[in-house]
Design a protein around this nucleic acid. Structure first.
Length: 567
DNA sequence: AACGTGATTGTTGTT
DNA sequence: AACAACAATCACGTT
């Protein structure tokens, strides 16, 4: 399929001055110091985590043949430098360091009275708001409570001047392995220290269903309960070490507990309207949260009395929830059969600014006007009005949407982390079947807790180019489309000699080894029969000495080897 | 699947 | 059903 005309590529700036050979090639592979022997690197062994660096990012690999300074190659995504990653502190309500510029002072971080009230009756049935401010603890605007429990946000580890916060994405093998000091010790497990870095953990040997439901609860919702209940009773707990999944309760698993609290399927398309029409973000989450916060005793969805019979949606949902069809279907299915439905129940998307406006608009219509409008008509009209709004008028909607979106993203990441490898496997089997049947194009999900696959040599080569403007110019010329860039890079890659490729191949080999180790560790941990044998040679602490990091990765792993120039 | 990012397609919620 | 925003996917190379 040829790509359609790209409207954004018409800038003439890119069409000038391609001078391929105007300067000496930066791709000079003749520097005898350039090569890292994989043998030599293996001296330190793939599990010797003291020399861990973030080298899976090939752009940061200090290829000796490259004379350009490290600054180019040290570029990291913004979230590495922008302070606490929102994704890394999913449930941290105890920050006290809100600055005036923080969203703590942001009006959009507050729910209106209506919104709060709606929790009682229609469970987030409306996003409508009025500017009567009632603070809700945004995940990025932590509530200023529990002063004794508050401490400055600490970077999980530091790397030079920068702070690195664990991502919900997979980790590089090095990161992963290094963060697995003692997988059998609950208090030092990876998820705790990494995914929930500042979580106070009292007892983690097991996790209750209530904990799980809390994990699944949107933060902007659960925060409300944090306000009224004692923090400990509703504080969200890490969903248990990933290395001991034998005690890990999957949010979608069909064990007795979670099965009961599971909410009706959202249904991909047709059925969703049935249950969701009046729902806003995560009814089910709210429901479970309400349960776990107010009464830990009654967990059965069926027995929950939410004191709002006015809401027909709830009744409909409960009705479906009562049906035992689902339970049987689940229980009867062996693990290896292809699921007919996805069991995943991720938190819903936060409403967009437009959706907030539209809901608001509908409300206003209902309040004032007597005429009946169908959705299509309403959307048409409201859409025009929305388009004519000034930026200032859209601002409050955008801010509120943004705040909710950030909260939702964190909640989603937290949810994903609660999935067990089995959950993921199951879901991917389902998705594969859907793709095969042409019913969906959804790709497989990956385990966010698992170590990340390393880059291939060619991909490292690509990254190396991209990290250096001069190399970009030399290899890509003025081509800005990434797809075409990869074609050019591949041509270059093919034109290179084995010797020229060698440093990349060596590095790829090295990281592949590290990855395999990390993967084995992870799988051992997640099979429930893991042993701690190999962990003794890992770094004893997830906290590194940054100085060692930098120097070692450059001087040691970077030393020459490939035949010439050894000592 | 690992990287990058602009373009394109799919999903979302509202009555 | 209409709407706008956003999420997800695609394009591309190699291993």
């Amino acid at each position: 399929m040829s790509s359609a005309i790209s409207r954004r590529q018409m800038s003439p700036d890119f069409k000038t001055g391609y001078i391929p050979d105007s300067s000496p090639s930066l791709l000079n592979f003749d520097d005898p110091h350039r090569v890292m022997s994989s043998d030599e690197q293996m001296i330190f062994g793939p599990l010797e985590m003291d020399d861990v660096s973030f080298t899976h990012d090939a752009s940061s690999i200090p290829f000796p043949w490259d004379s350009t300074n490290d600054m180019d190659s040290d570029i990291k995504p913004a979230y590495y430098t922008a302070g606490p990653s929102p994704l890394s502190t999913p449930f941290d309500y105890h920050l006290s360091q809100a600055s005036p510029s923080d969203t703590f002072y942001d009006p959009s971080a507050y729910l209106t009275h209506e919104e709060v009230s709606s929790f009682d009756n229609n469970l987030f049935g409306s996003w409508i708001n009025e500017p009567e401010l009632i603070p809700i603890p945004s995940p990025i605007a932590p509530i200023p409570i529990t002063p004794n429990d508050s401490q400055p946000m600490q970077p999980f580890f530091t790397f030079g001047e920068r702070s690195h916060f664990p991502q919900d994405q997979g980790l590089s093998p090095s990161e992963f392995a290094a963060l697995h000091p003692l997988p059998l010790s609950p208090s030092s497990s990876y998820e705790e220290s990494h995914a929930f870095p500042r979580q106070r953990v009292d007892s983690l040997t097991s996790i209750s269903p209530a904990d799980i439901s809390a994990v699944q609860t949107p933060e902007w919702v659960s925060g409300l309960f944090d306000n009224t209940a004692t923090p400990s009773s509703v504080s969200i707990r890490t969903p248990v070490s990933s290395s001991r999944p034998s005690v890990r309760h999957s949010p979608i698993s069909s064990d007795g507990y979670t099965q009961r609290i599971r909410m009706p399927r959202r249904g991909s398309t047709a059925s969703s309207h049935l249950f969701q029409s009046a729902s806003a973000p995560s009814q089910s989450h709210l429901q479970t949260q309400a349960r776990s916060a107010s009464s830990m005793a009654s967990r059965r969805a069926e027995s929950v009395s939410l004191s709002d019979d006015r809401d027909a949606t709830i009744r409909r949902r409960r009705k479906v929830s009562n049906s035992s069809v689902e339970d049987h279907e689940k229980a009867d299915k062996p693990n290896d059969s292809v699921p007919t439905k996805s069991a995943l129940r991720p938190p819903k998307l936060a409403p967009s600014a437009w959706q907030l406006y539209f809901t608001d608009w509908i409300q206003r219509q209902q309040a004032s006007n007597t005429r009946k409008l169908n959705v299509a008509q309403a959307a048409k009209e409201a859409g025009q009005e929305y388009a004519s709004l000034s930026a200032e008028e859209k601002e409050p909607y955008k801010r509120r949407s943004q705040t909710m979106k950030e909260a939702r993203e964190r909640e989603h990441a937290a949810y994903m982390r609660t999935l067990t490898p089995e959950d993921i496997k199951r879901e991917n089997v389902f998705r594969a079947a859907q793709r095969k049947a042409g019913k969906s194009r959804k790709s497989n999900i990956k385990d966010p807790n698992a170590p990340k696959k390393p880059l291939s040599a060619y991909f490292m080569f690509l990254q190396r180019i991209r990290a250096n403007p001069q190399l970009v110019q030399e290899v890509f010329g003025d081509e800005t489309e990434t797809t075409k860039q990869s074609v050019l890079a591949a041509a270059k890659w093919r034109s290179m000699t084995d010797d020229e490729r060698k440093p990349f191949l060596a590095q790829a080999e090295q990281e592949k080894m590290e990855y395999e180790s990390a993967r084995r560790l992870y799988e051992e941990g997640t099979t429930g029969y893991g042993t701690n044998i190999s962990f003794s040679i890992l770094a004893g602490s997830p906290i590194y000495s940054p100085a060692k990091l930098e120097s070692e990765s450059e001087s040691d792993t970077g030393s020459a080897a490939d035949g010439f120039h050894r000592f």
